Computed example of a mutant assay.
Amino acid sequence: MVKKKHPGKPLAQRLGTQIATLRKTKEWTQADLAERIGVEPETISRVERGATTPSLQTLEKISHCLRVRIGELLAETSAQPDDQATKIAAWLAELDEPHRSFVVDLVKRTCDHLRSA
């Protein structure tokens, strides 16, 4: 029996694309992310290009810093950089719970108002 090749991007490229997308939604440079997790900017560059895969320890630091589960970084599909919901989710993730609730309520009320206009 012959194994079928994975129809999507190879794991390293998929992971790199997802990390780059999430980093950009936070408006961070590769150097910003590298500094936050304690690696060289070139390491982030290689990971995002899919030239290398990070160690599990580094992957854990990246996922924690970007506020996503490791599984989300490895998922077959990824958010597009211009996906507005992804950007908003990234912004919300950086707020504490009371402020997050306030913003969500404000957005809901605004959408309800605009739908009824």
Rank of each mutant, 00 (worst) to 15 (best):
V39F: 04
T52L: 10
L74R: 00
E60N: 02
A85L: 15
A75C: 03
K9A: 15
L15H: 03
T52D: 08
T77P: 00
K87P: 04
W28Q: 04
T21V: 04
V107R: 05
Q30P: 07
E76H: 06
G8M: 04
L114H: 12
G16F: 00
R46G: 01
H113C: 13
S63T: 04
T52I: 14
A79W: 00
H6L: 12
A79R: 01
D82F: 06
T110Q: 10
E97C: 05
C111R: 10
H113N: 14
I70C: 08
T43I: 09
Q80Y: 11
E76A: 08
F102K: 08
A90N: 05
A90I: 04
A93S: 06
W28V: 03
L59K: 06
E42R: 15
T58M: 07
K24G: 04
L66M: 07
G50M: 02
L11K: 11
E40H: 15
H99G: 10
K108R: 14
W91C: 12
L56V: 12
K24V: 06
E76V: 10
A89C: 12
G50V: 04
Q18N: 15
L73E: 00
T53S: 08
K108T: 14
P81Q: 11
T25C: 12
V107G: 08
D83E: 07
L114E: 14
S78A: 13
P7D: 05
L73S: 00
S101W: 07
I62S: 02
C65F: 09
D32P: 00
S78Q: 07
P98N: 13
A20L: 02
L106Q: 13
A75L: 05
P41F: 03
Q13N: 09
V68H: 02
H6Y: 15
M1K: 06
A93N: 03
H6S: 11
L74W: 03
K26F: 12
I70M: 10
Q80E: 14
E97M: 09
I19S: 01
A12E: 06
P10H: 02
K24H: 10
